[in-house]
Amino acid sequence: MPAKSIGQEYMKGLWAENPVFRQLLGMCPTLAVTNAVINGIAMGLATSFVLILSSLVVASIKKLIPNQVRIASYIVIIATFVTIADRFMAAFFPPISKALGPYVPLIVVNCIILGRQEAFASKNSVGRSLVDAMGMSTGFILALLLLSSIRELLGAGTFLGYQVLGEWFKPWIIMILPAGAFITLGILLGLALLIEMKTQMRRA
């Protein structure tokens, strides 16, 4: 496979290999914390923190780790960064930490992170792994942003807590409920596939 340029390495995380919409990874947090934009952003940032740092560490020490214990080592590394993120949030941003609840510790089982270590960071240079992680993180944050914007706007008429839609709008409560999360993500996934299919057809 021809080597990608650094730019391509980054951009693939945004669309072509978007972790949520194309790879179908990391859906648990995507559904759980997107009931408000601020929560989505916070989760996105926390996950990015863990993904980028884990990728850096794994890429740096990949030659030292014997194959048989690599998963266990990756898990410990990831769990360490997740704990740091979780504790940091609990200490300095208590209301957000409470809103996100058990989902920050759950970043440790977010398939995106372990997936990237296995698929990329363990096989590429530190520099490339960093760019890859940043791309995936951006893609993930974008996905969270999109979903949470839709859910908060339609479900409460607000954006980041500010009333955007006026009095005339009766909020669709279902958007804040779990049902709304599932349905919105389902439709977005369908849209993503549709766009991809149309692009393929145009290329052919």
């Binding site: 740091i84 504790r87 940091f88 208590p94």
Partner: peptide
Amino acid sequence: VGLLTRERI
């Protein structure tokens, strides 16, 4: 990290 954040929490 645990010690640093414990008090704050």
